[in-house]
Amino acid sequence: MSTAAALIKRNIKLFFKDKGMFFSVLITPIILLILYTTFLRNIYMESFTSVIPEQLSVPDSLLNGLVDTQLVSSLLAVSCITIAFCSNMLMVQDKASGVIKDLRISPVKSSTLSISYYAATFLSSVMICLIALVLCLIYMAIEGWFLPLADIGLMVLDVILLVMFGCALSSVINFFLTTQGQISAVGTIVSSGYGFICGAYMPIAFFGKGLQTVLMFFPGTYGTALIRNHAMRSAIAELVKQGLPSAAAEGIKDSIDCNIYFQDARVGIPTMYIVLGATIAVLLFIYIIMNMIKKGNK
């Protein structure tokens, strides 16, 4: 146990001390923040106000809440994955620099090594994402919108699940990487690409039908939908309470990926949890099997 703890501590320390790696994880959230502050915020504000009947008087705090919760859910959905990916690159860096030889020369089991990478990635990513969540909640409170405690709790659960998914996916992909060049290539692709395919930069509902169908086979889509539902449902419920017709509220939910459809069938929240949980389990199983096969072939 002390061996695993020492390795986890080492991995976490390395992640936070390696400034290059640490700042590269912040690229996607920064792009997202810039997009929102420059034009996306206005676009979404206009989009929401256009579906609200003119006779309905909606306080600014509620409108800000709608836009901000969408930003927060996008930010968290994308960060949980990209941070986990970048953090888990330590596994590849150890291979590229030869440090792994020094770890493997000791009597530590290879399963302990693999678990330590996963656990350290999970802990450092969860730590950063939960700090990001707290900062987002403070920002929304300043803007005048407070999330119910239950929804905050569910968002914490979503963050944990998404980070677990990011760690498991990156463990499987990073397993095959061995060089610094591959680290840069995969890091860049994930950092810049995941924001698009998870619907963080633009809701999946805006994409073409074909692409939407493809994205529904990506487990990350369900994670984004979960966090978006829990972040935005109180604001949308408040809109309905203020007099917005239910049909219009459902339209908003459809347009911002709170409602997602697989083969035209609406996917419920429990199903989203099942898909995400099952994916994590399958990826972890694959990761374990790959390590066992590698050990046998060594």
């Binding site: 061996t3 020492a6 501590k9 390395l14 390696d18 440090v99 020094d102 000791s106 009597p107």
Partner: peptide, 28 residues
Amino acid sequence: VVFQNSVLDGVLTVYDNLKCRAALYGLT
């Protein structure tokens, strides 16, 4: 084993490196 090239963690201190490696042998 002393390898041809140093394989310790460059961004960690000497103390942290040795403490981590010692723990791999149960030395704490």
